[in-house]
Each structure stands twice: as structure tokens, then as C-alpha cells.
Design a protein around this nucleic acid. Structure first.
Lengths: 212, 212
DNA sequence: CAAATATACTTAACACTGTTAATAATTTTA
DNA sequence: TAAAATTATTAACAGTGTTAAGTATATTTG
């Protein structure tokens, strides 16, 4: 291994150490409570050292968001082998919601915060959200396949994909933001609250089935 | 007017002055960029004076969120006079999305931030989200009426209401958070981006119509 | 091998943030 | 008018993201 390669490796090492510490704090203490100084303390370096590896805090958030995207993507890619397209669509929806519940930190970072998208907007400008796009692409492909199976006849694929994403994202984000818990009209107990996503999703699926 | 009433009035005056300044800054400079000190400067008082009228920053956010709720509610209440239930349901959906677009500051405060719900959680505990509930109640009532008209037969009203809310909230929040703009797969121009909400909403409506 | 250079890191500092305690000014009550 | 209560302020604390300047450490060059 050449010296330059070693340096690069060291740099990547430091970057991932910082990222790992950031993720740990994000999960343990929440996204707001995580500061550059706390991350630095976790890695046992000076706060300013972080700026040698990440441009600013948003850069860290963005990097973490990318990690989340690729995690979600790998979970989805497994499902692409499901034969029946509509079954695959259901599986994707379930996996998406399950991701939101099991990885709330990642989900907030990826889909509920403005920062990563703003970072993309400022940094570069003509860049687009590649990681997000790749996941969305799988949804589009699956819905196209569903049309081959006779579902969603004559409907616009992009619009339908967007609508499906909106629905599950709406469920996930209202759940994670704590809005559902506060609704007296729903007043579900702890147990019911966990079931809500399932019930609402099932209703949506049954609606989709009817428009074969 | 008794002296005590005067005092109360003065207190309410100060509260609303602070709130007005907070709202102005929220709209003009964004939610993150608004600090207690800036609000104080806007009202021309000392920063600490604010703490005589609001417990903390979250209290201000919560108060502002309540203002937004009642604005949305009055917009909705007008629509309650629409005769046909399904037409009313469509009108509610449109009004909701229009609210998100025309009042993004309020929308973020009300439905995308965790703070107001957390404030409700901590403060009191057995309190519930009354203002949100009142708006949601209108949706529930309308969907019930739709069932009278023959729509959504045998479907659970609460689940369906939640699903409808999730859908429009998903659309609105993905739009406002800037996620849609970054999707290469959608690559809509400025003009198309404005149309997206409309198109996706129409598709959802047409889906609902099919399950009469 | 020694000097020069580049790399990695740290300390000190700036301009902010939300918030509290102590203090001053004002107004109301007795 | 004196006492009490209300209203507002200043000073300060502990924290934030971030930058500039300085210091070791390693690497390259003469």
C-alpha cells in the first residue's frame, strides 16, 4: 500500500469514526441534542478537528442521511425478487413503514428534515438527490409491473408512485412527529398505536386492490 | 373596567405583540433563524421580558401553532356548508393543501415540527391536542356523511380519515421539505412543481370515487 | 542526516443561542 | 406617603456552530 493510499484510508477512517459517533448520539440523545462538541468528545478529538473531515454540521447530517438511504435501499432490493408485482408493491410499502418504525433517527434525517435537501440545493446546485431517486425508482418500476398485471389501468405511473409514497410517508411522519398520539379522536392505547400503521396501510392496500 | 381587568388586558396585549413579532420573523426569516433576542428587538423590549409572558421558546411556538390551527379551522368551517358530502370531502382536501402552500410557516409549525406536540406531552400530560382534534373531527364527520351517500361502504371511519389525512399531509410535507424538487425521476420544471399537488390529489380523488 | 514542507490537530476566540438570578423602575394598594 | 406588588432590565451561565492562528508530527526533499 502506497503512502498516499494510507493517507486516504486514514482520512476515510476518521470520517467514518466521526459519522459513527454522530449516529450513536443521534439515536441515543436525539437529533437536536447532538452537537459538534459532543461528537468530538465521543471520538475523543478536538471539536475543530471535525471540520477537517466535514465541511460543516449539515455535511455530517447529509452523510448520515446517505447511510440511511443505502440501508433502506438494500432492504428494498431484496424485495425486488418477489414475483407478483402487486405483492411486491405491498412488500415495499410494509418495508418502508417498518423502516420508519425501526430506524426513526434515520427516517427523520432522510425524509422529515429540510437540511439534507437544502444542503443538496446549495452544494452544487444542479446535483440531484441520487440516493433518494434510486429508491423511488424501485417504486416506479414496481407500479409499472403492476400495470402489466392489470392494475391501475390508464393511470399515470409517476403520479401514482408519488401518491403512494405520500400516503406511507404521511403515515410514518405523523406517527413519528407525535401528532397521532395527541388526537383525542383516535385515543388509542399503547397497543393500538402500534397497530395504527398496520390498519391504515391495510385500508390503503384494499383501496388499491379495488381499482384493478 | 376594573384595574384587574386592565392588567389582564395589558398582559394579553403584550403576549399578542410578542406573538405577532414572532410570526413576522418566522415568515420572513424562517423558523430556525428566529431567536428570542430577535423577537425582543422586534417588539423593542429586553429579551428576558419575553419570559414574563411565555414560559419558554416552545411556549411561543405552541401559541403560534394554535393560531395556525384556528386559521385552518375557520377556513374549513366555511366548507362544512357544502351539501354533497363527497364534494365537501374534496373541498376539505383542496383547502388543506392550499393552506400548506399559502401558509408554509404555519403548516410546518402545526404538522411538521415535533415541538408543539412535545410541549403538549410535557405540559399537563393528560391534555390532548384540542385544536388539532377539532379540525380532524370535521374530516371524520364528512367521511361519515359520505358513507350515507353510499361511499366507502363497510370501511372504518377513523382509519379512512387517518388514511386521507396521511395522504394529503404526505404530499404537503414532502413538497414543503423540498424532497420532491430533488427527485430526478420527477424533474418537473417550476411550473410542473406547482401542478404536482393538484395532479396527485386528483388521482387520489379518482381512487376514492371508484370505491363507491 | 538535516532542513523544509506538508499534514493533522489543538487552543483561543467570535458571535451567537436559550435561560435564570439579582436588581432596578414603575405602578397599585393600604 | 409608605408598603407591596408588578413589570422590566442588566449581568451572567452554559451552551452552540464556526474560523483564525498556532503547534506538534510526520513526510518529503536537498
Amino acid at each position: 500500500m502506497s503512502v498516499q493510499e494510507k493517507k486516504l484510508k486514514h482520512k476515510e477512517d476518521s470520517r467514518s469514526k466521526i459519522l459513527a459517533a454522530a449516529k450513536k448520539l443521534f439515536v441515543e440523545e436525539g437529533i437536536e441534542a447532538t452537537s459538534i462538541r459532543k461528537i468530538a468528545k465521543e471520538v475523543d478529538i478536538s471539536p475543530t478537528t471535525i471540520y477537517l473531515y466535514y465541511k460543516d454540521k449539515r455535511d455530517i447530517v447529509y452523510a448520515l442521511h446517505l447511510e440511511g438511504c443505502s440501508l433502506l435501499r438494500t432492504r428494498m432490493e431484496v424485495l425486488m425478487h418477489v414475483d407478483h408485482a402487486f405483492e411486491r408493491l405491498k412488500a415495499i410499502g410494509k418495508a418502508y413503514l417498518s423502516f420508519a418504525v425501526t430506524e426513526p433517527g434515520y427516517y427523520e434525517l432522510m425524509f422529515m428534515m429540510k437540511e439534507p435537501m437544502q444542503f443538496l440545493d446549495d452544494h452544487g446546485g444542479e446535483d440531484y438527490w441520487e440516493e433518494g431517486d434510486r429508491v423511488f425508482e424501485m417504486l416506479i418500476a414496481t407500479i409499472k409491473d403492476c400495470q402489466q398485471e392489470g392494475f391501475f389501468k390508464g393511470m399515470d405511473v409517476q403520479t401514482l408512485s408519488l401518491q403512494a409514497w405520500s400516503t406511507v410517508h404521511g403515515m410514518a411522519s405523523l406517527f413519528l412527529s407525535g401528532h397521532l398520539k395527541q388526537l383525542n379522536n383516535l385515543l388509542f392505547s399503547e397497543a393500538l398505536e402500534a397497530e395504527f400503521l398496520e390498519r391504515t396501510f391495510q385500508l390503503y392496500v384494499s383501496m388499491l386492490e379495488r381499482i384493478k
